[in-house]
Design a protein around this nucleic acid. Structure first.
Length: 363
DNA sequence: ACCCGACCTGCTAT
DNA sequence: AATAGCAGGTCGG
């Protein structure tokens, strides 16, 4: 019934990529499970529905624009047509999309493959890395079998920066809600799928306009409204999105230092951005979870610390880098995912059996 | 260099 | 039913 869409399928085992964990572990906030095992979101300014079986990932590409030509009559509150003047930053950044024009109805199979390869960083041999990390660390060895295929996504820096400004002192559910709201308010419509319109992530220029802070406060962003508005303006002053993209060329420490100059970006958020969109695979974002993991499983002497000071932060990050090496940020993400309550269901340990026994007793 | 309180909001546990 | 506690923190003092 839906308008035509294009399918592409590539070989990939779940030990190399688990969509459910990778897309919902809090690195990107733009993916939705539209049906069991079916994930919809945007890569390179196009809407995709992804699913997988034991040996393949299936990519359904949705056409740009409306999926039902008759249902045009929306009163779009905002007129952000100027936002369409430029292709998606992630797309413009990657070799995969050089020369791509958004007017093409569908990306070719060849380009799709390169795009997926780039977004999921499939050149990184995750299975082998898990083996190395397991060898290096007993705790990883015991936890990771329940959480295979957790990959870092190669994300768009603009989306990454503003999404993680929203993340401070907040939970994944509400971060997701705020990011969605940001796109509705300041992004522009890209495609409508099953009656739902998907908007691009806002341009920095849109977020730097006057009145943004007030609007965002009205929409529940709280104190993050000022951070978003101010950081967007600061980025504009420094040279706009180009400045942000060029941070990728800097070494880790310099890149981290530049990001921290933005309002609302401290050490932790800066490390998220370094890891997820700047290509620094050893960056370790130390948040409450990672601190607790560190105290529980690695550095018990830090238990007495009330707050994560700069010194403690560095000690934890350095410890993870020492244990896991160059790709420590990736390993950290596996441990982080294993610590999320939302993934408790993936742990098939005794507690599940106990629960079932309890149920039986009740019956 | 370190520590502290304040900060928006909405879900959870008690 | 009301209220403290917490969530992928950051800032200014």
């Amino acid at each position: 019934m839906t308008a035509s869409s294009k399918l592409f399928k590539f070989a990939c085992r779940k030990s190399e990529l688990r969509l459910d964990i990778t897309l919902q572990c809090g690195q990107s906030f733009r993916w939705r499970e539209v049906n069991p095992g079916e994930w919809r979101g945007m890569i390179g300014n196009r809407v995709w529905t992804l699913s997988q079986d034991d040996s393949h990932v299936i990519c359904q590409q949705h056409p740009l624009g409306q999926d039902s030509p008759t249902s045009q009559g929306g009163k779009s509150k905002r007129t952000n047509s100027k936002n369409n003047s430029r292709s998606h930053p992630a797309a413009s950044r990657t070799k995969a999309n050089e020369g791509e024009k958004n007017t093409e109805t569908f990306l070719s199979d060849e380009k799709t493959e390169v795009l997926m390869n780039d977004y999921f960083q499939l050149d990184v041999p995750l299975g082998k890395m898990y083996a190395l990390w397991s060898k290096a660390d007993k705790n990883f060895a015991s936890v990771s079998p329940q959480f295979p295929g957790v990959r870092m996504l190669n994300q768009d820096p603009v989306e990454n920066v503003f999404s993680f400004i929203c993340s401070s002192n907040n939970n994944i559910q509400r971060i997701t809600m705020l990011v969605d709201r940001l796109c509705k308010l300041y992004g522009s419509p890209v495609a409508t799928v099953d009656g739902t319109t998907w908007n691009s992530f806002p341009r920095v220029t849109s977020l730097a306009e006057s009145g943004v802070e007030e609007t965002l406060r009205e929409h529940g962003f709280g104190y993050r409204a000022k951070f978003i508005s101010k950081s967007a303006q600061m980025i504009q002053e420094k040279g706009g999105e180009e400045w942000l993209f060029n941070l990728r060329t800097l070494p880790y420490e310099e890149c981290h230092a530049q990001l921290v100059t933005l309002n609302g970006i401290g050490a932790k958020v800066s490390d998220c951005i370094c890891l997820m969109s700047m290509g620094h695979l050893g960056a370790i974002p130390v948040d409450t979870h990672v601190f607790q993991i560190a105290v529980r499983d690695y550095l018990p002497h830090l238990r007495s610390c009330k707050t994560v000071t700069d010194k403690v932060y560095k000690e934890i990050a350095n410890h993870f880098r020492q244990v896991f090496g160059e790709y420590a940020g990736w390993a950290h993400s596996v441990l982080f995912s294993a610590d999320l309550k939302k993934f408790d269901g993936l742990k098939n340990d005794e507690s599940e059996e106990k629960n079932q026994k309890r149920k039986k007793k009740k019956c």
